[in-house]
Amino acid sequence: MVKLKINQKEYSVDASPDMPLLWALRDVLGLTGTKFGCGMAQCGACTVHLDREAVRSCVTLVSRAVGKEVTTIEGLSADPTNYLQKAWLEVDVPQCGYCQSGQIMSAAVLLRENPNPTDEDIDTAMSGNICRCGTYPRIRKAIHLAAQMQREGGKVQ
């Protein structure tokens, strides 16, 4: 049993310490919002926050998460100060939608560290997240919109 704190909740997880966090979340705890895409930190679909950093859970072992705060897309969705999903809705970003959890988790770190990102900042922050539907232009637009909402306290619609 490994003790993990996920989305502000304590869990005892029946997982071997060498199991990547991704599979503990998905297969052991049933938190399936975090996706499996490549298994080698190439595509970003599995991005979660580990102590607020956008780690790739497919290569992050459960043992590394012990004593740290894990936030998944399910947890981020509960955060009322997060404008990303509102912007994603406004711009109608997703297509197949499979990569979007990871995209949003990555964008959240960008906006926390840089409330007013340029296109170049977005290129830097988001190039670890692949979208085969090519929603990149809309992700870019939604990040700019979310940044604006964040700056203006959510008044932008």
């Binding site: 938190l31 399936t32 919002g33 975090t34 998944t72 897309i73 399910e74 969705s77 999903q85 994603w88 809705l89 109608d92 970003v93 997703p94 939608g97 979007q100 959890s101 949003i104």
Partner: peptide, 10 residues
């Protein structure tokens, strides 16, 4: 899109 809400919150 009607499926956007479910596709952005997992």
């Amino acid at each position: 899109r009607l499926d956007t809400p479910a596709k952005i919150n997992g």
